[in-house]
Design a protein around this nucleic acid. Structure first.
Length: 837
DNA sequence: AGCACGCCGACT
DNA sequence: GTCGGCGTGCTC
């Protein structure tokens, strides 16, 4: 029986957000599966699509139904369970199906249409009068054979209309196909084709002229093994024409072979073996092994203090999972931030690991991904999107530092990897481990109340495991909270308190190392004129510009706009223009002034954009080429250096004063994480936290390493004020170039939301005791009211119980589709937002 | 999203 | 009378 393919096409619009039916050419049929990537004719063009199902009968008139044009991969890039996961994601996070599917595959496979032109066969048959420019275009294409449309238009930039006309009249013919962005890497390998017993015969009869060829052949005869062309040429200092000559004589064969680009090719990893577990670790491991043995879906929250040895537990659980014949996925916040982590996995599992590094080139990432799809590895480790690793028999998913905000994708689809992971594990009967020293309150509450995570309702109830002590009985570092108000009273206006100053001096004398954290890059936070009060702002965003000293520029940290720093006030020409606030560059300068000869490595977005710069800087610090590692929050995570005995937080307040209900949680997490960097080995550690609000509970609890009391206090706040995890949120952001239009649209939207909530019979008040409730806040201007010349307004929906607010938003958004299309309005929906910007 | 079809204003 | 503006609708 013939079957038709249901295809989701790569056309991101509301009207095309459904499967289209296609016929399957007979020769393709055995290869087409759910998850296959295909090129299909769609209207006048060819687009990429994914097969999401099959049907034996279609509503579509068979005379109008088209056929799949090309199959783009022999092995489908998506498995049926990933296709299903995509459907779940598009529903949960309000995005097009195609966007969800595309987010699961490497960018290398986001095919582009290639349009190729050739001249009709009838050209030249008839005596037609051509315009001179038509003649030129036709002759060029005719002479060159099939040409990419792009090439033709760049050759004749002003003849676009003529090309279009020739196409319409059929003198030029266009063929479209889908091309991947990155080709598989191929290498030439030289195979020796003669037998060993023929060697003498061949060599004696070798033409005397072909000395180089003979040398090459003799070289290959030393091993009789195939050899990489590049290596062979380097060894013999010759060119490929020599080897070609040998090929012509039939002594060797040159074959092109696919290889994987290996970003770790030049690195050697010492083989490591399982370490003996402490009693605490063993307890946790036993629970995980037990769960793996049932082969059922389970979710654990592993609360382990920094330095409690979570990684070793991960490694051994993965080992067990692999020995069961199943696969494992490990998510880490931002893998390039933790080269140490990669190293541990590589040295334990060697070539069984694929690393999906966020700073790999597209080609490298594609190759790592192919290793997974082609079952060459058993473990995938990577950032957020590694949760889509195309394994088919997953036993274990580990999410390290599960509270990290980088698990939430800020672009559409705005998914949370933690929730996707639980969903995928539920599909596959896999065990999930959420590991953290400072669990997200959502996870913690679910674990202590034995409920599934709020973001992934299909998941199993969370079970709490904990590891409250550090490996080797090392104590947590002593934390000093320094009240900066007191310092100011005592006339100290420097960025270092006397205590921190002395501590730095002390470590320098002892030749120990320190980590200093400041949550702000650049030199200063804003630039102001003392005469007229002018503040330098980004011309396209309503946000203050930051001064960067090295380049002497003002920079917008939102859109990247940069301008030369003014010497006089642009508004009143006064020379009293001053820089306020402190950034990492300024701290670096101050350190150099106060401690002559101090060696500082500064690590922030500005110094780590270059590929590999991260590893380089950390390597230098590890080798003790510097005394101080100074940086933004990226220095707080996962680093482990034996000689670090001092951690200083320049101002804890910058994280606390962000207008976000999670500010206290973030501050607690940041302080606890950074404090954990000190004294991890034989030397005891010490931490100084400078703040203007030492009485704040997040700082107090962090300084005493008390997670549970903090969590309880913070949960109480959330419950009282009606914030997650006691309700759910949807943030809807509207943006438009014209403010009045934006205000009108967002108000209309809000009104429609309220009306629809009412017709569905939902109580529009969260503060009432009702189990099912919904509340709308806004519209109000967004915290950043304008970005890139577009004004921004937002609405927040809070809801709980059996209220399907996502469906509500989806329905109302659909009504505004025309406005989105024609009025340059954009509506962005963020389900379970992590940042309220 | 593209692209075609279709109905109203300023020009050869 | 035509060229071209972008409003509406379709894509298996």
């Amino acid at each position: 029986m013939t079957r038709f393919a249901k295809v989701i096409v790569d056309v991101p619009s509301k009207q095309t957000n459904r499967p289209f039916d296609y016929m399957i050419p007979a020769e393709m049929d055995p290869w087409i599966e759910v998850g296959s990537r295909v090129g299909v004719p769609f209207g006048p063009r060819t687009v990429q699509g994914f097969v999401v199902g099959f049907t034996s009968e279609s509503e579509v008139n068979l005379t109008r139904m088209k056929s799949i044009k090309e199959l783009l991969d022999l092995v489908p890039p998506l498995s049926p369970d990933l296709v299903e996961l995509g459907a779940w994601m598009s529903r949960k996070y309000v995005c097009h199906d195609i966007a969800a599917l595309q987010s699961m595959i490497p960018t290398a496979l986001k095919g582009k249409v290639e349009r190729v032109l050739h001249v009709s066969e009838t050209y030249g048959d008839e005596e037609l009068l051509w315009l001179p420019e038509e003649q030129r275009v036709l002759d060029t294409v005719d002479r060159q054979g099939p040409m990419k449309l792009e090439q033709v238009t760049t050759m004749f930039p002003e003849h676009e209309k003529i090309i279009k006309r020739l196409l319409k009249q059929g003198f030029l013919i266009e063929t479209q196909s889908i091309k991947d962005r990155v080709a598989k890497k191929k290498v030439k390998v030289v195979f020796i084709t003669i037998q060993e017993d023929q060697a003498d015969e061949v060599l004696t009869s070798f033409p005397a002229k072909a000395r180089r060829q003979k040398e090459a052949l003799e070289f290959l005869m030393q091993t009789w093994q195939p050899m990489l062309m590049t290596e062979l040429l380097a060894e013999l200092h010759t060119t490929s024409s020599t080897i070609k000559g040998l090929e012509d004589k039939g002594y060797v064969e040159i074959r092109e072979m696919e290889v994987f680009r290996d970003p770790y090719a030049d690195r050697r990893f010492k083989k490591s073996v399982a370490m003996e577990l402490t009693e605490e670790q063993q307890h946790v491991y036993d629970a995980l092994e037990g769960a793996l043995n049932t082969r059922e879906h389970n979710v654990f929250l592993l609360h382990g203090v920094t330095g409690s040895g979570k990684t070793e537990v991960y490694l051994q659980s993965i080992q067990h999972c692999i020995s069961q014949g199943r696969e494992a996925i490990v998510l880490v916040p931002e893998i390039s931030l933790t080269p140490q982590m990669v190293e541990r996995f590589k040295s334990r599992f060697g070539s069984m690991v694929a690393v999906l590094h966020s700073r790999l080139s597209n080609g490298e990432r594609y190759d790592e991904w192919r290793k997974i799809r082609e079952r060459k590895v058993k473990v995938a480790i990577g950032a957020r999107s590694a949760i889509f690793a195309p394994f088919e028999d997953i036993g274990l998913v580990i999410i390290d530092e599960e509270h990290e905000t980088s698990y939430k994708q800020e672009e559409s689809p705005k998914y949370h990897a933690r929730d996707v992971a639980v969903k995928r594990a539920a599909q596959q009967g896999a065990v999930v481990v959420l590991g953290s020293a400072t669990p997200a309150l959502e996870s913690y509450l679910a674990a202590v109340t034995n409920q599934p995570l709020a973001g992934s309702e299909d998941g199993a109830a969370l079970k709490l495991l904990s590891m409250p002590t550090r490996v080797g009985g090392r104590s947590l570092p002593k934390v000093h909270v320094v009240d900066l108000r007191e310092e100011l009273k005592n006339g100290n206006r420097s960025m270092f308190s006397r205590d921190l100053y002395q501590a730095i001096e002390d470590r320098l004398a002892k030749k120990e190392q320190m980590v200093l954290l400041l949550n702000r890059r650049g030199y200063s936070t804003f630039v102001m004129c003392r005469t007229c009060g002018y503040v330098a702002q980004c011309p396209e965003c309503d946000i203050a510009l930051t001064y960067h000293q090295k380049s002497d520029h003002l920079r917008c940290h939102y859109c990247g706009h940069a301008e030369k720093a003014p010497k006089t006030c642009p508004s009143c020409q006064s020379e009293h223009i001053r820089y306020f606030g402190t950034g990492t560059q300024r701290v670096e300068e101050e350190l150099a002034k106060l401690f002559p000869g101090i060696r500082v490595i500064r690590m922030d977005v500005d110094t780590t954009t270059e590929k590999g710069s991260h590893e380089k800087l950390l390597g230098q610090f590890r080798d003790r080429q510097a005394d101080v590692l100074l940086g933004t929050q990226m220095v707080a995570k996962g680093l482990d250096f034996p000689y670090v005995t001092l951690v200083g937080v320049i101002t804890a307040d910058s994280a606390l004063n962000i207008p976000d209900f999670r500010a206290a949680e973030r501050t607690f997490q940041l302080l606890t994480q950074v404090a954990g960097r000190a004294g991890r080995h034989h030397l005891p550690g010490e931490v100084y936290i400078q703040t203007y609000t030492p009485e704040h509970y997040s700082i107090g609890h962090a300084s005493e390493h008390r997670y549970k009391p903090f969590a309880e206090e913070e949960l109480e706040h959330r419950r009282k004020r009606g914030y997650p995890p006691y309700c759910k949120l949807i943030l809807i952001t509207f943006s438009h170039e014209q403010l009045p239009m934006l205000v009108r649209m967002s108000e209309n939207f809000a009104t429609r939301l309220k009306e629809e909530a009412q017709t569905r019979g939902w109580i529009h008040m969260l503060h009432q005791a009702a189990d099912d409730a919904i509340e709308l806040l806004g519209p109000v201007a967004s915290p950043i009211p304008r970005i890139k010349n577009r004004y921004r307004f937002q609405c927040m929906l809070k809801y709980r119980g059996n209220v399907d607010a996502v469906e509500l938003v989806r329905a109302v958004s659909a009504e505004f589709d025309e406005h989105v299309r024609s009025d340059q309005l954009t509506i962005s929906v963020d389900v379970d937002p992590q940042m309220l910007m």
